[in-house]
């Protein structure tokens, strides 16, 4: 089974005459609220300091975004 990631990858059509070097792998975000749409009681919690830093009390709903993930043009 593939490792779970908070983004999915697709490979759009690349034309033989496209003007720019192609980005072959594109991604879109699938953050955690999609998969646990109703919060169950009793989820594990961060300590208060970490929770304030992360923006959520629950690791299950933490969604990091560190910039666009996709292949470089021409690769």
């Amino acid at each position: 089974m593939a490792t779970f990631t908070q983004y999915k990858v697709y490979y759009p059509f690349v034309g033989p005459c496209d003007p720019c070097p192609p980005i072959r792998a594109k991604t879109y975000n699938t953050p955690p609220q999609l998969y646990v749409p109703v919060q169950p009681p009793g989820l594990p919690q961060y300590d208060p300091y970490t929770a304030l830093k992360q923006g959520t009390l629950w690791p299950a709903y933490y969604s990091p975004y560190d910039g666009r993930i996709e292949s470089k043009p021409g690769e």
Partner: peptide, 11 residues
């Protein structure tokens, strides 16, 4: 679409 689909955020 052809002009934008392969542009990076920097470009």
């Amino acid at each position: 679409y052809k002009l934008t689909k392969d542009a990076t955020p920097e470009q």
